[in-house]
Each structure stands twice: as structure tokens, then as C-alpha cells.
Write a protein that binds this DNA or RNA. Structure first.
Length: 820
RNA sequence: GGGGGAGUGUCGGAACUGGCAGACGAGCAUGACUUAGGAUCAUGUGCCGCAAGGCGUGGGGGUUCGAGUCCCCCCUUCCCCA
């Protein structure tokens, strides 16, 4: 007699068995086609919540499906282990970051195993271990040699109270220090950068990858390509020095509308362009600007501020002389740090002109322009007016004509700019990969030789709540000898942004034990690129863009031969709980452990897939999960209780076979497209039908067990533990997860009989069950003969009859004017 | 302000290239078995109407024999960028 379904026992039993048998370890040498299925590895925050399961479970179902479809699947897992929270834990709780991190990994690994995924744990990668980060350092050296890593002064977030640099994520609210609420300002410091801008154009090319439009749009937005022109303005000022200044504009066709010229307050030319009588005012304003955050400065709707410098710029095309001002909304980091002010055609320029009573001149007429000074800036296309020889041209023609003239007279040129800035990788933190360079008094910046890698993080650093990197104060680390001259030198104390670590981890999975290189080239070549990469959309512009850049850079260094790391990308949605995004900081995390213990891993996996389309996310509900749990229970008793034939009905047998093949077809197609919710719905429909068949005992014994066998195979990816247990109990050889996926028979899957809808003027009036092979003529005759239809067409003129094969007959009638 | 999604029963959601709206599940109702149950099984469940029938996919227009699906305008909401 069948026992009760006890998921917690079954889960543990099979997880142990699979691990003991190394069932899921990927073989490097295998004849089957490879498939690299990757899920973004988690940050080691400490606990795996339902949101993580939502990322992991469906992608595991997909990897399992691919295995059964005959692929040699690589499905690894690891940990993104460097980062600030570990350091904060050290400061607030006195635990060493390394201890905190490794303890979290222990717990998370245990939780990850409870999902029952096909992870190949023998390939686990942890980014904070020296055997990993020595290669992160090695890549840094390669990029440095290639001129892709450089050090330069750059404005960074600075807290004047803590006397320290803050990462962007430590700037909270409207630009406040997360620790002491002091407004964060910018300060110029030497920082390390990766030259991602060199790849700006290539990063906009997505040919050969299958990525969601949404992510591509976000990245394109981020890279921010704009076409325009660089134009030189001659400067008139009392001092000597520079006599011209370049600006970039996307609208060279508006150049006749320039009525003022703006510089960023930090611009190096400000001093020499300031007339003596304006000096005091300018200095005061520049000082004030330094205390503003970038966020405040560019915020729309903000009252415009600025100061006249007392000098002038001359428009190269109109010859007009316009005043030079400085304004905080012009940022030194964009373009040349200067702009031409065209108030009639730029919203912010218009606000500025209004505030300081500067002239507004319309040079592009919109279709409905009255000739008056406009109330709003018009940024659209139109006809050029007030523009000298260009008057009358369309703005598009004007764009080209102005550029041609500028180029002829060497006053400017066509130019493409990008919003993308180089990737600032320096962090003034302890818990990260040390940047492998030393500063020598004599030789300057010297790269650590490859043979001296890794530069180890010292573990005796002291953690003080100053916000400064403990490495600064760690003498044993800082003091070293110059690798070139042997003289005394200081180590770089900056560590790398942890996004550097995650830019190449997918390469390491292919050969995590390789000691003399970041990866074994042959193995890497056989697995890469990643076929399916899944994870949260929040990584659209950081991780995913950096990983693409890294891949291209390593290709150019000669280490890789492909252009894109992730062929197919898919982003699952967000799980919310109590109408809020689930997160530790909001305190609304749902721990899976309780549900796993009560209802089993398969129920939790199943419920997460059943909520809705994976892409859209959804709300976790304690109530909803019982539906899946009940279904698993029904499957259990359906398979474990005896089947008894009462009387075979050939029609029922045919129908059962038909349903099975339809289900195989549907489940296969849904899995291929990540439509997990509808896959489960069709498995449930199949279950419902099986229950009825079983109750009546109307199919032969052998057919029943064949159908159950196929059904279990279809369930195996979604409910791996239950499927394995039932597979064994129905007398099949272990393991179900090494079986071939069932194939559907197109003939059996297709409908023999269909329901034809009969409409009159588009309204449903009758339905008839007919053979699928029905001819158009027969269908129309049938429709016209229907009793229900007659009532709606009698006495009316039939204009036409539309027949859509296998779907609908629509009879179009008009009321004949009756002689009533 | 720019870019990208999403609006369908009481709820989560189905619906291939335009062709029977509401699959599957939850909830609810009634019944059965149970002393009891957050268990199991059966039946019902978009709205109005006794019925015939009518109305229904955020709102308003349009294209079409036919629109949840296509086009235009508007509203609400979520995400990203500013």
C-alpha cells in the first residue's frame, strides 16, 4: 500500500544520492553538443531568500531540460564575495570580513543545495580567495600593458567630515554621506580607470546575440551616442593665453541662435577669462558650486545660477560677440566642459536666459511658429530662420551644410560623442582585489611582475570606523621594494571594484583548478560563450556592460576569440512581498527554508514558476503555494496507488494518447521559451485527465503505465525529487535525470476533431464539433443549416460567408428593408 | 522630461500569425466522506436578466466580416535614465 507523500524525506534522500553519484558534474570531454547554462552568482550577503530562488529554480529547470534533450550541460555556481557589506560587518560587529564572508558562503551553499539544482559544485568559484583574485590582478596587468588601465586625477565623492572617499552607493538620498549625513562634494583624487570608452561604438552592436530589447535599450541609453559637431569659438578677454575654445553640440544647425557662452565653474580657463572687476564674485560662486552635488546641479526645475566673467566669445559663423558666463548646470566631465547657449531651442538654456535677461533668438521655425519669442524652447526639427546664408534650409539640411562650412574653414568638424565614461575601478576599501602596482619614488608607477602575484590582502588589518581603507595603515602591506630598482616603494592601497571580479568568473568555471593561468584555454574554448545567461535586470548597465567590455578587451589582448560572452540573455522579474520589493533592508524577506521543510523543494520551485511569466516577477503569497503542493500530492497518489482496468474503451485510449502527445509538445515548447507557468498548467491539465481515466479504468494496463512513464519524464525538470522517487517506485532504473526527453508524435498530437465556432455578423451563435478534415464547403453548409443560426439569418440578405479553417464560420448578413 | 514594460473575473494569471475571452491555479458556494480539520472527492462560479437575450479585456476614437491582440489620442501603474 502506498505511503503518504513526505517531501522532506524524499528531498534529502535524493539530494544525497545525486551528490554521492556526482550525477551533475559536467565532463569536459564529451561527444554530445555542449550547453553552458549560467545563472548570475549571488553576492555573499548571508541568506538566500525567495528572490534568489526565483532566479535559481527556473533556470535550473531549463538546465535539467537541456540535459534530458541530449546536451552536455555545464551549470556551475559560485559566489561574488568581495564588497562593502563585509567591511561594514567588520566595523559594526568586529568580525573579520573574510570570516563573515566565508561563514555566509557556508550557509548559502547549504541553502542552494536545498533547491535540488543540477549545479556542478566541483567547479565552485569564490572571488575573494587568492587563487581567484590573483587572476583578477593578472587581467589588470594585461589591460595595463595594453593601455586599457590608467591612473588619472578625477573628481570623486568626498565627505569632508569623515575625510574619506565614498563609493556612489554610499551616497544616499540627495547626496548625503550614508554614515554622517554630511553633504557629499566632489574632490579631485588620483584614480584607476579602465578604458571602456574605447569600446563605446562596439558595445552598441548586438549582432549575433539574443538579448531582450529592454536591456539593449538601457545599455544604448547608457552608452549615449550622439552625433553633432565640435565648433571653435574665438575668445576675447583681457588676459593673454588661450584664444579659442571648443564646444560640442548636437545641433550645429542652431549655431546662429547662440546668445551666450557657458563654461563649467571648474573649467581651467575660468581664471584667465575672468575680468578683474568680476574676480571676487566669480571666486565666491565657484566655491559655492564645489559644495553642490552633481545630482543637485543638474536637477531639472532648479533655479538657474551663474556669473558673468566679463569676457566674450565670437561665433565663428555669424561673427557675433556673446558674453561668457559660468553656470553650475554645465559639468566639467561632459564634452569640453563648455556649451554654446541657444535659449530658443534648449530648455535649460532658456531658463538661464530668462533668469539673467539674455536675448532669445529663434533660428529654427516649427510649423506653427508665429514669429514671436516662444514661451517654451523648441527642440524639434523645422526650417532655419535668422541664419544668414542658411536661412530657408530644413534643420536636417542645415545640420549638414553648417558642418560642411565649418570643416571647409577649419572652424570645427563633425563629431560623435558618447555619454559613457571610463570605468572608475578604484575603491578606497579593504575588502577587494588589491590593485597590483607599487609607487616608487624613483620609477613612478610600477606594475607588480606576474611572478609576484597574487598581491595578498593582509589579514592583520585593523578595522576602524573612519571610513578610510585599513590598508593605508597596514605598514607590512604598504612598505615594499620597487620591482625595478629595488628601492623603497609604497604599494597601491586602492582595491578593485567588485564588478571587475564578476567580469570574468564565467571563464573560470571552465577550469577552476588551473593553477598557472586564469583558465585552461582548450577547456575555455570548448565551453564558451555562455549559451544561456539569466539573472536580474538590475545588472543591465553595470555588470552586463562591464562583462561585455572585459570580453572584448581580453579578445584584443589575444586571450579570447569571441566577441560576446553571453549569447542568449534572459532577465527574470522581481519577486515582491507585501507590495514591496523583497530585500534585507526593507525587512520583508521570505526565507525559503520553512516552506522547503514543510512542503518540499519541489513545491517551492513549482510555486515560483506558477506565479506568472518569469519575466514579469510577481507577488509571493503563502496561500498560492498550496495549489502546487496539492497538485504534487495528487500526482503522488495517482502514481503510487494501483491502477485497475474495468473495461477498455478504444476511444478513451485514443484520447489519452492524443492528450499525452499534445502535452509533450506544449511542455517542450514552453520550456524552450522559459514559459514555466504555462508548462505547469498543461502538466496539471494532463494530471486532471489522468485522474478521470484512472477512476473509470478505461484504458489498458500497459498504456496506462506508458503514459505515466512519459508524464514523469515531463515532470522531471520541474519537480526533480518527486519525479525521481516515483520513477524508482514504478520500477524504472535510476536515474530519471539521465533519461531522454520524450518526443511527441505530430499526428497523435494534432486534433482529429475540432470545435467550429459559428458567428453571425461576428457574434457567436453556435458551436459544432466536426472532423478536422472538414472542407470549406461542408463547413459553410453546416453553419447555414444550424437551427440556432437560422433564427438570426432568416429574412436577411446573406452578403458573404467567411471561413477560417479549423476555427470559425462567420455569416455576414444585412437586414433587408421589410414591408412590415 | 526621455526610454522600456504592464493594465483581462474576487485574486495570480491563460489566449499561436487578428478568429469560441477567462485555460491552469487560488478563493468562494453547495454536496459527499469525516466527531473534528488549513485533509480528500464531486459540482458550480465574469456581470445583468425568470428567460430569450444583452453586456463584458483601463477610457475614447478608428481599421476589419471579426479586435484583449493592429492604428491614433488619453488615463493609471511599475522599472531604467536624467
Amino acid at each position: 500500500m502506498a505511503r503518504e507523500y513526505t517531501p522532506h524525506e524524499i528531498d534529502r534522500k535524493w539530494q544525497e544520492q545525486w551528490a554521492a553519484d556526482r550525477l551533475y558534474e559536467a565532463k569536459d570531454d564529451d561527444r554530445r553538443p555542449k550547453f553552458y547554462a549560467l545563472t548570475m552568482f549571488p553576492y555573499t550577503s548571508g541568506d538566500l531568500h525567495i528572490g534568489h530562488w526565483y532566479a535559481m529554480a527556473p533556470s535550473d529547470v531549463y538546465a535539467r531540460f537541456k540535459r534530458m534533450r541530449g546536451y552536455n550541460v555545464l551549470h556551475p555556481m559560485g559566489f561574488d564575495a568581495f564588497g562593502l557589506p563585509a567591511e561594514n560587518a567588520a566595523i559594526s560587529r568586529g568580525i573579520h570580513p573574510c570570516v563573515w564572508t566565508m561563514r555566509n558562503i557556508e550557509n548559502m551553499r547549504r541553502q542552494l543545495k536545498s533547491i535540488g539544482a543540477v549545479y556542478d559544485w566541483s567547479r565552485e568559484v569564490i572571488t575573494c580567495l587568492p587563487e581567484y583574485y590573483r587572476w583578477t590582478q593578472w587581467f589588470f596587468l594585461k589591460l595595463h600593458q595594453a593601455g586599457l588601465a590608467y591612473r588619472v586625477k578625477a573628481p570623486v565623492n568626498w565627505c569632508s567630515r569623515c575625510q574619506t572617499v565614498l563609493a556612489n552607493e554610499q551616497v544616499v538620498g540627495d547626496g548625503l554621506c550614508e554614515r554622517c549625513d554630511t553633504p557629499v562634494t566632489k574632490k579631485e583624487l588620483e584614480q584607476w580607470f579602465f578604458r571602456i570608452t574605447r569600446y563605446a561604438e562596439e558595445l552598441l552592436n548586438y549582432s549575433g546575440v539574443e538579448w531582450p530589447e529592454r536591456i539593449k535599450a538601457m545599455q544604448k541609453n547608457w552608452v549615449g551616442r550622439s552625433e553633432g559637431a565640435e565648433i571653435s569659438f574665438r575668445l576675447e578677454h583681457e588676459g593673454g593665453g588661450q584664444q579659442e575654445m571648443k564646444v560640442f553640440t548636437t545641433r550645429p544647425d542652431t549655431v546662429f541662435g547662440v546668445t551666450f557662452f557657458l563654461l563649467a565653474p571648474e573649467h581651467p580657463l575660468v581664471e584667465s577669462l575672468t575680468a578683474s572687476e568680476h574676480k571676487a564674485e566669480v571666486e565666491e560662486y565657484v566655491d559655492w558650486c564645489r559644495r553642490q552635488s552633481e545630482y543637485e546641479r543638474v536637477a531639472s526645475g532648479r533655479q538657474k545660477t551663474g556669473v558673468f566673467l566679463g569676457s566674450y566669445a565670437v561665433n565663428p559663423l555669424s561673427g557675433e560677440r556673446v558674453p561668457v558666463w559660468i553656470a553650475d548646470y554645465v559639468l566639467p566631465t561632459y564634452g569640453t566642459g563648455a556649451i554654446m547657449g541657444v535659449p530658443a531651442h534648449d530648455e535649460r538654456d532658456l531658463e538661464f536666459a530668462r533668469k539673467f535677461h539674455l536675448p532669445v533668438r529663434v533660428v529654427i521655425a516649427s510649423a506653427d511658429w508665429s514669429g514671436e519669442e516662444p514661451l517654451e524652447a523648441y527642440a524639434g526639427p523645422g526650417t532655419m530662420v535668422n541664419s544668414g546664408q542658411f536661412t530657408g534650409l530644413s534643420s536636417e539640411q542645415g545640420f549638414e551644410a553648417v558642418c560642411d562650412l565649418l570643416e571647409d574653414k577649419a572652424l570645427g568638424k563633425r563629431m560623435v560623442t558618447y555619454h559613457l565614461r571610463d570605468w572608475l575601478i578604484s575603491r578606497q576599501r579593504y575588502w577587494g582585489t588589491p590593485i597590483p602596482v607599487v609607487h616608487c619614488h624613483r620609477c613612478g608607477i610600477v606594475a607588480v611582475p606576474e611572478k609576484d602575484l597574487p598581491v595578498l590582502l593582509p589579514d592583520d588589518a585593523e578595522f576602524r570606523p573612519t571610513g578610510e581603507s585599513p590598508l593605508e595603515h597596514c605598514q607590512s602591506f604598504v612598505n615594499t621594494a620597487c620591482p625595478v630598482c629595488g628601492g623603497s616603494a609604497r604599494r597601491e592601497t586602492d582595491t578593485m571594484d567588485s564588478f571587475v571580479c564578476s567580469s570574468w568568473y564565467f571563464l573560470r568555471y571552465t577550469s577552476p583548478d588551473t593553477m598557472n593561468a586564469p583558465f585552461d584555454t582548450a577547456k575555455m574554448k570548448s565551453w564558451l560563450p555562455v549559451d544561456s545567461y539569466t539573472g536580474g535586470a538590475e545588472h543591465a548597465v553595470m555588470h552586463l556592460l562591464y562583462a561585455r567590455f572585459f570580453t572584448k578587451a581580453l579578445r584584443d589582448v589575444g586571450l579570447l576569440e569571441f566577441d560576446e560572452p553571453f549569447t542568449r540573455l534572459y532577465n527574470q522579474g522581481t519577486i515582491i512581498y507585501q507590495s514591496d520589493k523583497m530585500s534585507k533592508s526593507r525587512g520583508n524577506v521570505v526565507a525559503p527554508d520553512k516552506y522547503v521543510a514543510e512542503l518540499g523543494a519541489d513545491a517551492v520551485r513549482g510555486y515560483l514558476m506558477f506565479i506568472g511569466p518569469w519575466e514579469l516577477g510577481g507577488e509571493w503569497s503563502d496561500r498560492g503555494i498550496v495549489g502546487i503542493s496539492r497538485w504534487l500530492n495528487r500526482v503522488w497518489s495517482l502514481v503510487t496507488t494501483d491502477y485497475a482496468v474495468r473495461g477498455v474503451d478504444p476511444a478513451a485510449e485514443k484520447e489519452l494518447l492524443h492528450l499525452l502527445h499534445k502535452t509533450i509538445k506544449k511542455v517542450t515548447a514552453d520550456l524552450e521559451d522559459f514559459r514555466f507557468n504555462t508548462m505547469l498548467a498543461s502538466l496539471m491539465e494532463c494530471t486532471n485527465h489522468l485522474s478521470k481515466v484512472k477512476e473509470r479504468g478505461i484504458v489498458a494496463d500497459s498504456l496506462w503505465s506508458d503514459v505515466v512513464t512519459s508524464f514523469l519524464l515531463l515532470m522531471a525538470p520541474a519537480a526533480p525529487h518527486l519525479a525521481e522517487e516515483l520513477w524508482t517506485r514504478t520500477g524504472h532504473p535510476y536515474s530519471i535525470h539521465n533519461q531522454r526527453w520524450p518526443e511527441h508524435d505530430e499526428e497523435l498530437a494534432s486534433d482529429e476533431e475540432i470545435t467550429l465556432a459559428i458567428q453571425v455578423n461576428g457574434k457567436l451563435r453556435d458551436k459544432v464539433v466536426v472532423p478536422a478534415s472538414i472542407s470549406e464547403h461542408e463547413a459553410k453548409e453546416l453553419a447555414l443549416g444550424s437551427e440556432r443560426v437560422k433564427a438570426h439569418i432568416d429574412g436577411k440578405r446573406i452578403d458573404k460567408v467567411i471561413y477560417v479553417p479549423k476555427r470559425v464560420v462567420n455569416i455576414v448578413v444585412t437586414q433587408t428593408p421589410s414591408a412590415s
